Amino acid sequence: MTAMTVFPPADEGWFKSSFSQSTGQCVEVRFGEGLAHVRNTRDRTGPMVTFNRAEWEAFLLGAWNGEFDMPA
């Protein structure tokens, strides 16, 4: 996996999960040019992590399969 940290583009097109609470403790995602950009909601001007389509889809499949569940 090749993730790179870059600074966020314009503040448009970002969204967060409908399961997120309004406490500001979540991440936002934005898609563009075959990439998924992820940033911290509490630091919208800070760095973000960018994944290509294959990396993003592998993450989503792992999350759906429970591979990233927090240990008890």
Rank of each mutant, 00 (worst) to 15 (best):
F7L: 11
F7C: 04
D11K: 09
D11T: 02
D11W: 06
E12N: 05
G13N: 04
G13Q: 01
G13R: 07
F15V: 04
K16W: 00
K16S: 05
S17L: 04
S17A: 07
S18I: 07
F19H: 13
F19M: 10
F19I: 00
S20M: 01
Q21A: 11
S22N: 14
T23Q: 11
T23L: 04
T23F: 00
G24I: 11
C26S: 14
V27D: 01
V27T: 00
V27A: 07
E28D: 14
E28I: 02
F31A: 07
F31Y: 15
F31Q: 06
G32K: 07
G32Y: 12
E33C: 05
L35Y: 07
L35A: 06
A36M: 15
H37A: 05
V38Q: 03
V38E: 00
N40S: 10
N40Q: 08
T41G: 07
T41V: 09
D43R: 13
R44N: 04
R44F: 05
G46L: 10
P47C: 00
P47V: 09
P47H: 09
V49Y: 01
V49S: 03
V49C: 06
V49Q: 02
T50A: 12
F51K: 02
F51C: 08
F51N: 06
N52C: 11
N52E: 13
A54W: 01
A54N: 06
A54K: 11
A54F: 03
E57V: 15
A58K: 00
A58R: 09
F59I: 14
F59W: 13
F59C: 06
L60R: 13
A63V: 15
A63G: 01
N65P: 01
G66M: 07
G66L: 06
G66V: 10
G66D: 05
E67C: 04
F68V: 07
F68M: 12
F68S: 02
F68Y: 15
F68G: 06
D69R: 15
M70Q: 13
P71K: 10
